[in-house]
Every structure is written in C-alpha cells, then in structure tokens.
C-alpha cells in the first residue's frame, strides 16, 4: 500500500467543501430521490471516473471507517484500485474487500450480492443523474418535469419496448420511483440489482461529479422500478451458474476463454464469489 500523502487535508477535500457537500447530502436524504445541486469540486481524477462518488466518500468518511471500493462488482478492476489507493493515501483509512467488513462502499455499476445492513453506507458513482436526460436534454425543463411529476414521457419509452418486443427492453440504468414521488436513475447498475435498492437497510448516496448533483435513498425507503400493471418489472436470469463458486443467484459476467469463442460465466461480485468458495472449502 502507498504511504499517506502529505500536504493535503484528510481525505483530500478541505473541510469547508466537505461541509457544503454534507449539507447537500442532508437535503438529499430529506427528499429521497430528489437531485440536489451542489458546488462540485474538481478532483484529481477525470469527470466520469467517479469524482462524484469520491466527493461524497471524502465528505462522510471518518478516520475509524473501513472502505471498500468496487467497479463492475469487483475490487480488483483498475479504477477500483485507483480510487481505493487515493483514499488510502489521502485519508490513511483501512480498506477491505469484504462487503460485511466495510462501513462505506463506493461502487460503480453494481450493488454487492451480500445484503447490506443498517449502518453501512453505499455510495454510487453516477455519470448521468437525470433519468429523463435522453427524453429531454434541458435541465430547465427536466426540473419542471420532476417538480410536477410529469413522467408520462418516460412511460412512453417503456410502452414502445412492450409494443416492439413484448416486454420492457431496458437492461441497466433502469429508472425507479423513490418513495412514490421522484423518478430516479439508479446509476448504470444492471436491473438485476434494482430490487436490492428497495427498503435497503443501508443508506444509499449518489454523487454525480461533473453534473454537480447529489441524491439519496434513506434506509428502508421504498424503491420501485417502472413498469406497467400488465407487464410487471422483471430481472435477468441465467441458465448457467458461476464456474467458480456455482452460485445461481448472482449476476454473472461472461468470460471468453479461447479464440473459438468458448464462454464461461463467473460472478461479477468477486468478494461474494470468494466467500462462497471459502465456505465450500470449510464445509466440503
């Protein structure tokens, strides 16, 4: 592990900036699913690489906290490594790969398979916080649409899917309604993970760095995925099971194993997979 960097404040950001972000977070928690504008700071990582999540993590992390960082469910992808190192260097906090041992989990594109508990915080990196963005490019308009709950246009997209394919064909970043009031982007997690958000005991915080928006889902809040009464929401399923731990209930990544295009499937959540293998070895 790299040594702790000198010359920077604890967790990089200055305390005023952190306070400003925490104020935005408090507002976000008070209005679940509402996007709170905040004075997003420039970070030493590029926009789109997790600067929003990092600012949130920097603002809520304490010296006693243990941090886990995942990207695509895995602890060892380059971007996860890079962000984990950043906090190890600038905050000197303990890090872990074990979901249950973490106080804070910063994630890109997945929710861990191991259920989270109350007291943990899940921090999502968000590229495009506005679920209506590809229906309406203007902020000045989407703000009104949220204020007035004008969500018909999003339903049009789902209608088109059903009319064309017989079912809803959005597979990730699948929009949700939070607490029956605000439409929210769950960030580009697979829709497989959407049900985990509903009434999750952990606090869920979302940070979008260059769009300068923060939003939140407080513990035990209702989160429902959009659908039709006669075409209810459903998640992906696999015929295969994980080639390493044989899990049938986790999100599987496809791995191409040779030039002939042979494939195998493994858990995208590396920690979950490892825990299962350890358990199997302990109780053969």
């Amino acid at each position: 592990m790299s040594e702790v960097a000198t010359g920077y404040n604890f967790a990089y950001l200055d305390e005023q900036s952190k306070r400003m972000i925490r104020r935005a977070l408090l507002k976000a928690v008070a209005i679940p699913g509402f996007q709170v504008p905040f004075g997003g700071r420039e970070m030493p990582l590029p926009h789109g690489w997790g600067t929003g999540g990092m600012q949130v993590t920097a603002s809520v992390i304490g010296q006693q906290d243990t941090l886990k960082v995942i990207d695509q469910g895995a602890d060892d992808t380059t971007n996860a490594v890079s962000i984990r190192r950043f906090f190890a260097r600038t905050a000197g906090v303990a890090t872990t790969e074990e979901t249950a041992a973490a106080d804070l989990i910063q994630t890109r594109h997945r929710i861990p398979e191991t259920p989270l508990r109350n007291g943990q915080i899940l921090i999502y990196q968000v590229p495009t916080p506005e679920p209506l963005r590809f229906i309406e490019p203007r902020d000045s308009e989407t703000i009104k649409m949220h204020a007035l709950r004008e969500y018909g246009a999003m339903q049009v997209k789902l209608y088109e899917d059903v009319a064309r394919f017989g079912h809803i064909a959005t597979s990730y970043d699948y929009p949700v309604m939070v607490n029956r009031r605000y439409m929210m982007s769950p960030s580009p997690i697979p829709k497989f993970d959407n049900p985990k958000m509903d009434r999750m005991p952990a606090l869920q915080l979302f940070g979008a760095g260059f769009e300068k928006r923060i939003y939140a889902v407080p513990p035990y809040t209702q989160v429902t995925s959009l659908d039709f009464d006669d075409h209810p929401f459903e998640v992906q399923s696999w015929e295969e099971s994980c080639a390493i731990c044989a899990a049938q209930d986790s999100f599987l990544d496809e791995v191409i194993t040779d030039d002939a295009g042979s494939r195998m499937f493994v858990c995208s959540d590396t920690d979950y997979c490892r825990q299962r293998v350890a358990q199997q070895e302990a109780n053969p």
Binding site: E150, Y151, G152, A153, Q155, V156, K157, Y159, E160, V162, A163, R164, F228, D229, D230, H231
Partner: peptide, 23 residues
C-alpha cells in the same frame, strides 16, 4: 415512437399504467 405511443402519451401523463388499456 409509434403511433400508439403518440396517442398513449397523454394517457400515461395523466397516470394510466395498464398497457392493454392504453393500446
């Protein structure tokens, strides 16, 4: 988007959530 979605949009905007009815 399709003709059906064009007509259905206002219904969905006022809260209709049954695909069959909209159609």
């Amino acid at each position: 988007v399709s003709a059906g979605a064009n007509i259905g949009e206002r219904l969905m905007a006022v809260g209709e959530r049954h695909y069959g009815n909209i159609r």
